[in-house]
Amino acid sequence: MSIETLIAAVLTLAIFSFLYKENPFYRAAEHLLVGVSVGYYLVILVEETIWSKVARPLAYDQNWIVIIPAVLGLMMFLRLSRNRAYLTRIPLALLIGAGAGVSIPAMLWARVLKQMSASMLPLYTVSGMIVLVGVITTIIYFYFSREQEGWFGYLAKTGTYFLMVFFGATFGYTVMSRVTLLIGRMEFLLTDFLGVVG
């Protein structure tokens, strides 16, 4: 057995041991995973961004504009200071504002208009009818300015049934992927590590 397999198997078992209870092996694996993965992302992101988007444009292209985001980025370090921390609100405001602006048309298109257009089916088919009733009653379920009573409550209740079908179906559907992942890990332990199967 290679050293790689041994290390991977020990770590795999350490994580699985969490199922019994939280214990020193899991705790060690958890802290190691956090450290290693932070290091991984740090290296990848610094190389991708600080080098290619700040240092190179400054050094080779004399693109002075990148000083602005670099300064805004450096301002984030003020988070570590007690009485100047409020200055980090400026870069935060840029991120939050730009993000909000981008999301309005994107959400309208993908989440609202596209879904609406896909739900407009001929009503003489069973699926056309079901889809329309399902979409409308689900939307009614989310209507907030009115108590769910009387005829309105009846519609909202129909919406709940549709929601339950969706949740049940998603649950059942996702089980498949999750079980596959476990089988994959078990295959590794039984085949590569213990050599029982295969």
Binding site: L19, I183, M186, E187, L190, V197
Partner: peptide, 17 residues
């Protein structure tokens, strides 16, 4: 819950054999 976990582990491992 640990009994459930055990059952799942068994039903994953045994069929593989």
């Amino acid at each position: 819950r640990r009994i459930i976990f055990l059952i799942i582990a068994v039903v994953v491992i045994v069929p593989m054999l």
